[in-house]
Nucleic acid binder design. Sequence first.
DNA 1: ACCTGAACACCGTTCAAGT
DNA 2: ACCTGAACACCGTTCAAGT
Lengths: 231, 231
Amino acid sequence: MASTAQVRLTARKTPRQARATATLEAILEATIQVLVAVGPARLTTTRVAARAGASVGTMYQYFPNKQALLYAVTERYFDIVAASVEQVCREQHGARVGQMAEALVEAYWRAKIVRCKVTRALYLVAAEVDTTPLVEAFSKRVELATSTMFASAPDAKFADLTIVNLTLLTSLFGTVRSLFDRSLPKPWACGVQQQLIFMCRSYLEAAKVPSQPAAAVQPHRPSPVIERGPV
Amino acid sequence: MASTAQVRLTARKTPRQARATATLEAILEATIQVLVAVGPARLTTTRVAARAGASVGTMYQYFPNKQALLYAVTERYFDIVAASVEQVCREQHGARVGQMAEALVEAYWRAKIVRCKVTRALYLVAAEVDTTPLVEAFSKRVELATSTMFASAPDAKFADLTIVNLTLLTSLFGTVRSLFDRSLPKPWACGVQQQLIFMCRSYLEAAKVPSQPAAAVQPHRPSPVIERGPV
DNA sequence: ACCTGAACACCGTTCAAGT
DNA sequence: ACCTGAACACCGTTCAAGT
């Protein structure tokens, strides 16, 4: 592992009294605020504690180290985003694929942009803490929701839904991230977001397995190098 | 700005003697090695200096701070990747769009994966240093190369090449990054990479403006919400 | 149970002294 | 011109002492 050595990232103890719960909450909230204000690299445990109205020692009662603090905040964030994706997936159950793709992209985009400062700050914590397990859990959760949704579409069947779904999500997550990383003027970012919907629709359309009344329209040229499943 | 305050990120002075040039080179090389070994968060100026066989003071003669060091290394890396993308763009000049898309994705993927440890480490330095200017310069450079290439395709014209090109690249950069961030088993990663080619092809195909002998095939359903340019 | 903050170790950065 | 490394300030983490 490159960036991180072996460190416990889970909470150290859970509060038993109401006062303690409030303290813990204050610390987590303060962490987000400091994160947004100065970024993860310049975030200081003392600063977080001060912002939360507590002392450093208190913070260390609940978290074994700075990394665990960032880990906890990231976990909460992923949970919110995953939940809102799951919601649209339920809402779009049984719709047409094109409509699903559009709703999915828009929901994810909205979830990221509503708290865009937080999003931007959290994209950077990966450098301080190894958040791979969180990314993995988040991805798996979303994959399940979207694949269930796509499987319910009446207008499309896919030869290998798993890989199509995985590709679509990888591209969605990545494209949105790229948009955050670059400092594109808003109109361009919106343009790309619109095109992204169009791109996802085109991909799904092209990845469809031809339905019953097929054989009518054939691909113009034989598509040569295009394989589907994992190699 | 969240993560970084005002700091000079450019080199402090340039070496005048051969000995000094060697020192500088050793420092840059050592930085990459340490970066790969422990990641940007745990990279230490002393460690870098030691690895380079120099003292901390020497490092500070050439770089005003740790961030400038990481900045310089990132710049070099971007330069290599951009150069290899530019090369395929020249090679594919005048080819068909589908072929171009495939070559582009594969070239970018290859450039990233040949030194995958370095790639992974450098993805993380963005948290320590504000590399936005470098990302921007890199993107602009690649945009120019690919848009020139696409404009030379005999089999496709686009209503707005700029936004199509921007979307394609944003998606390419992002998807590849997502693949690095997640710890997918190799076969799945390869599967997604293959599908990404297919996705880019489908998108370009769908974004084409119908050529001369058009009017024959009409879109099955009016596509509702799909706009092209920036809003 | 929970909280505090002085104390310690470590790392970024400087600068007076060397070749 | 270039290099060195002890010295200083700052931040993560601990722990003895408090309520």
